[in-house]
């Protein structure tokens, strides 16, 4: 059985590493934050699987703490960019294929 748990944990670790592409590529900061949040959920699952595979029941507590505090970074993220916008500010949404100068700089 623990072989199966370990394989599942390895698979989930692989999905985290794949999902890193989204953090690296963005393009918006919302995308990056979303990906980090997703890693939290996957990390909780990996910890639960490892707790059975390695027979270490304390890992359930670690998973509990991760689940409990997963939301903190997201709340901090929302508190960014709160300078009061002038009332006539247009919501500066632009189509993703416009190569505007404020496109996030990608240095790869």
């Amino acid at each position: 059985m623990s072989l199966f748990y370990m394989a599942a944990a390895l698979f989930l670790l692989g999905t985290i590493l794949l999902g890193l592409v989204r953090v690296l590529r963005g393009p918006g900061s919302g995308d990056r934050m979303l990906a980090a949040q997703l890693f939290g959920t996957t990390g909780v699952t990996i910890l639960l699987l490892l707790s059975l595979a390695l027979e270490e029941s304390a890992l359930v507590d670690v998973a509990l703490v991760f689940a409990l505090l997963a939301v903190v970074a997201a709340v901090a993220f929302v508190r960014q960019h709160g300078l009061p916008e002038p009332p006539d500010t247009p919501i500066h949404r632009q189509p993703p294929d416009t190569p505007g100068p404020e496109r996030p700089h990608d240095d790869r």
């Binding site: 949040q37 959920t41 997963a70 939301v71 993220f77 949404r93 993703p96 404020e102």
Partner: peptide
Amino acid sequence: LVLAAGTTAAHMVAQRTWTHGEFE
């Protein structure tokens, strides 16, 4: 807890993207 965190985070990320635009 994960359900609550995921829901809240999704709501807040979506709302922030909606009010500030996808690219800052």
